[in-house]
């Protein structure tokens, strides 16, 4: 429809376009300066063989898709892909559900609600090294507080970080904890934008809290939910620090995701391998791209409906 207006609008439409571009210009310039080069660089790294020597001397061998083929045929690949899927989907599903629950909980004011809500954001103020180290501290097999509590209830020692069966779960839990503030803030702001009269009208109809949530809150929150989930997906795909600090992706790749794999190739060993690292990074960009496509399609469907 916008296109129709523009075409029909002639001179006015064109001036509208210029205005739109003028408002967009700072962003476009900003993106060109600060993102174009790194993106180009990431692609450049992935299609050459950048050994440390080639990196310093600037004379890498062009290898075309070889790095990508190596990555895909590596034993780690399928494992990392599976872990990435579990980690990402598990994290965003739980973060979203908990964040939404909390947002609804805090939506109506009660004594101390503002302060309590603000306190929920405190985890975010901590440097990642501190929060991730604290989690690995708490989840330590022998001297961790979590096992110590479980043992008080007669549950035996769980090797949270050191067993291949639980390490992925452990880093996911820590990541969910870190992601709750993000979801809470955005979803809460979204709730604030739902006009109160709608609830009042529904209240008059005798709807209970549960019905109000499913009939009004949830549908009206859909655009905000969509963007929260999409961003959550992107940020979770990128997560390195928390996993790296807690398990190094181990034991034996049990908690290696694509992002930590990429990090390990580049910085986790004595010998930096930038090229495969960049190739894995680009695969992640592709995944995010695909998620973005799905998002836009859904949005369009919604707009048409």
């Amino acid at each position: 429809m916008a296109a129709l207006v523009t075409r029909a609008g002639g001179a006015r439409g064109r001036s509208r376009q210029w205005t739109a571009l003028a408002f967009l210009a700072p962003l476009v310039i900003y993106l060109l300066i600060f993102y174009a080069y790194p993106l180009y660089r990431n692609i450049d790294l992935s299609v050459h063989d950048y050994t440390p020597r080639a990196f310093v001397q600037g004379d890498p061998e062009f290898t075309g898709p070889a790095n990508y083929l190596d990555i895909v045929s590596d034993d780690t690949f399928l494992r990392a892909l599976r872990n990435t899927a579990l980690f990402t989907l598990g994290s965003i599903a739980a973060q979203y559900a908990l964040g939404l629950g909390l947002a609804v909980f805090f939506h109506r004011h009660f004594r101390l609600s503002v302060v309590l809500r603000a306190l929920f954001l405190v985890p975010w103020l901590l440097p990642l090294i501190v929060s991730a180290s604290t989690w690995s501290w708490m989840l330590n097999s022998e001297n961790g507080i979590v096992n110590s509590v479980l043992q008080a209830f007669g549950i035996g020692q769980i090797n949270w970080l050191t067993s291949p069966d639980t390490s992925l779960l452990s880093v996911t839990i820590a990541n969910i904890w870190l992601g709750i503030p993000f979801n809470l803030v955005i979803l809460y702001a979204g709730l604030q934008n739902i006009p109160d009269d709608l609830y009042e009208a529904a209240g008059l109809d005798g709807a209970n809290a549960w019905q109000r949530f499913w009939r009004i809150t949830f549908p009206l929150l859909r655009p905000v939910s969509a963007i929260t989930l999409l961003l959550g997906l992107i940020y979770t795909l990128k997560v390195v620090d928390i996993i790296w600090i807690m398990t190094k992706g181990g034991p034996a790749d049990a908690s290696t995701t694509l992002a930590t794999w990429s990090y390990r190739e580049a910085f986790g060993t004595g010998q930096p391998d930038f090229s495969p690292a960049a190739a894995v990074g680009n695969l992640l960009i592709l995944i995010a791209f695909a998620a973005g496509l799905v998002h836009v399609r859904l949005q369009r469907k919604e707009a048409n409906a």
């Binding site: 034996a252 004595g270 010998q271």
Partner: peptide
């Protein structure tokens, strides 16, 4: 560095029982 990475990976696998 390459050999060492293979070595510590092996150590991790054995210690964790995988």
């Amino acid at each position: 560095p390459k050999i060492s990475e293979a070595l510590w990976t092996g150590v991790q696998k054995a210690l964790s029982g995988s």
